[in-house]
Amino acid sequence: MQYMLLIYNAEDNGPQPGTEEFGPYMQGYVDFTKEVQDAGKMLSGDALQPTATSSTVSVRGGKTEVMDGPFAETKEQLGGFYILDCDDLDEALAYAAKIPDAAYGRIEVRPVMIFD
């Protein structure tokens, strides 16, 4: 099954660039990505730019509206994601727990809808 692991954290939470912890934290992502790649589980994954760069689009009555920022002004924002090919939920949850931000924010694990 395919699972999307969505990485949520407040942008000012966790190791920040320029601090001593930032290096090991980023190395954690390098190691995790290599682990899922080597295990043949990685389908895709990326970090996202901060929400300051985000725009929201909606179309109502044929009219397109564009707004600055993410849809919901919550403290925890989507910061990145992985899509992994796992045997079952237990495997996906085990990988989610290894994502460095699991220790600071939280990881949502969602099965990807497959249309067959």
Partner: peptide, 14 residues
């Protein structure tokens, strides 16, 4: 069914 909760014994670690 949809989230793939497995029908198996958990790993030793879990």
């Amino acid at each position: 069914r949809d989230a793939g909760i497995p029908f198996k014994l958990p790993d030793a670690a879990d």
